[in-house]
């Protein structure tokens, strides 16, 4: 049945791209999955489990392994790894996309395009007062994810020692209209607090401080957990102004505490970086004549066969990407069936 239909091109194989292509394939549509990296899975494939004391914290990072395991049931999905899209041409019916990558150059025809190109973690170098590149023990939360996944424990880049005091700075690159990010990235409070919990579970003596504006509700049991989270960590409802190296290798900040500016220092600092549009976004916008949402991400053009799914359309958790992917599959099919 699937042979008679046009294929659907899915760009990006993170949580959204994988979910959407499997949903479409299960519903009888041919999918072509193009991924610029050398492996499937996107960002989430590099995240750590955040379970605490044998209890899942519902971050959803392991779901990507589930998706990849299920992906084996769909040999009919054509996968192009290490492949980019040079050009997309609109035809009377559908599109021709010129793929360029590991398998050489190839033109493929498709009836609809699903952009699941994901996000880019905010680059802290864009915010000069963080002095990110000159403070060795300041890392991003993405780096912490990888650290915990690959080494189980946190360590300081400067000397490999385990930090005893850690500070998380929230909203780095989020809620930042000046830099074109006028949105809450939705995921940072969740990942930061879950990782902080995990860190404390692994090394109970670790003292963890949070600099924050508003802590966002994440997960279903937030209201019960928030009370104990408030006890577990030190909470400072400010974002520091200056960041500097202190005592040789510690991370210092100046911050307002109880109406006075004080300097505090930590063994390590984690920047809870937000989600920003990918560097490819502009290319796709130009190729497909797409406009930008008020949050600065790609807007779809569903009436003309272009769909944007997952965090390519705006900040989104793994959980929401999965829902969004399933929802988009229905809209793509409606388009393919000519129902719209």
């Amino acid at each position: 049945m699937a042979q008679n239909r046009d294929s659907i091109l899915v760009v990006g194989s993170g949580v959204a791209g994988l979910s959407a292509s499997m949903s479409l394939a299960r519903q009888g549509y041919n999918c072509i999955l193009v991924e610029k990296a050398g492996s499937l899975g996107g960002h989430a494939a590099g995240y750590t489990c955040k379970a605490i004391n044998g209890k899942c914290q519902k971050c959803g990072a392991c779901l990507v392994d589930d998706l990849l395991a299920r992906f084996g049931d769909f040999p009919e999905i054509q996968v192009f790894l290490e492949t980019r899209i040079d050009r997309i041409e609109r035809k009377k019916k559908g599109f021709t996309a010129s793929l360029n990558g590991k398998y050489g150059l190839k033109d493929i025809n498709c009836g609809a395009i699903l952009l699941a190109t994901g996000f880019k973690p905010f680059d802290p170098n864009e915010k000069s007062n963080l002095c990110f590149s000159s403070i060795p023990n300041m890392i991003t939360a993405v780096e912490l994810e990888a650290m915990l996944r690959d080494k189980e424990l946190p360590y300081r880049p400067s000397d490999g020692r385990q930090p005893e005091t850690i500070a998380f700075v929230q909203c780095v690159g989020s809620r930042d209209p000046k830099r074109g990010h006028p949105y809450c990235s939705q995921v940072c409070c969740g990942y930061a607090l879950r990782m902080a919990g995990r860190l404390r579970d692994l090394a109970p003596k670790t003292k963890i401080t949070f600099f924050f504006m508003d802590i966002q509700t994440f997960g279903r049991s937030f209201s019960q957990r928030w009370a104990s989270l408030q006890q577990d960590f030190i909470w400072i409802n400010e974002i520091p102004g200056d960041y500097f190296v202190s005592d040789g290798d510690r991370v210092g900040v100046s911050v307002e505490v109880e109406d006075e500016i004080v300097d505090l220092s930590f063994d390590m600092m984690v920047l809870s970086v937000g989600m920003t549009p990918t560097d490819d976004q502009l290319t796709y916008q130009q190729m497909l004549d797409l406009s930008m949402s008020s949050e600065g991400f790609m807007l779809p053009d569903e009436d003309r066969g272009v769909f944007v799914v997952g965090s390519a359309s705006g900040p989104m958790s793994i959980e929401k990407s999965i829902t969004d992917a399933a929802g988009s599959a229905t809209r793509v099919i409606a388009y393919m069936e000519g129902a719209r």
Partner: peptide, 9 residues
């Protein structure tokens, strides 16, 4: 939204 960055620096 009173993040305090101005005052802290």
């Amino acid at each position: 939204y009173a993040c305090g960055t101005c005052a802290a620096g």
